Amino acid sequence: MIAVNEYFGGSVMSLGYTTAAGKSSVGVINEGEFEFGTSQHETMTLVEGQLEVLLPEAEAWQTYGPGEAFEVPAGASFQVKATAPVAYLCQYR
């Protein structure tokens, strides 16, 4: 089953699904600044575009591009900035 998720008034949208390996989602982040919270450990891999990310307990923003990934522990929050649409794969493991 595919679940449609919409956040921040439609500025972030994803399609969630489950495989034998666990839950994942693919989505798009539109231009803007957003803060997300995690309930599970997340690995986010960029597919297209660039995303500036402020990870939990980090003092500096890091920029990620296509093929690059970052991890966020469960029970944390992180911030992102996009200056153009960004496509991503998020795996919850």
Rank of each mutant, 00 (worst) to 15 (best):
E59A: 14
S77Y: 07
L55E: 07
L89R: 11
E6L: 06
T83D: 06
E6V: 12
P73K: 07
A20W: 01
V4H: 15
Q62M: 14
G75T: 05
Y17G: 14
T43R: 15
V26D: 03
L51P: 11
I2P: 07
S24M: 12
E52Q: 15
E57L: 05
F70S: 02
Q50S: 10
G65T: 13
V12I: 15
F70Q: 02
A21G: 05
A74H: 04
E33H: 09
A76N: 09
N30W: 00
G9T: 04
G10Q: 08
G32F: 03
V80M: 06
E33V: 10
Y64A: 01
M44L: 15
E71Q: 15
V47W: 05
S39T: 10
E71N: 12
H41L: 05
V80L: 08
P56K: 12
A74L: 03
V53P: 06
G49W: 11
A58C: 04
M1H: 15
A82W: 06
G32R: 08
E42K: 08
Q50G: 00
E48H: 12
G27D: 02
I29H: 13
Y64G: 01
Y7W: 14
E33A: 08
F8C: 05
V4S: 12
V4T: 13
Q40T: 08
G10A: 08
G65M: 07
P56R: 12
E42W: 01
M13H: 11
S14P: 08
F8D: 07
T83V: 02
S25F: 00
E68K: 09
G75A: 09
L55N: 06
V80F: 03
G16M: 08
V80E: 06
G27N: 11
L54F: 12
G67Q: 10
E48Q: 13
M44F: 07
W61V: 11
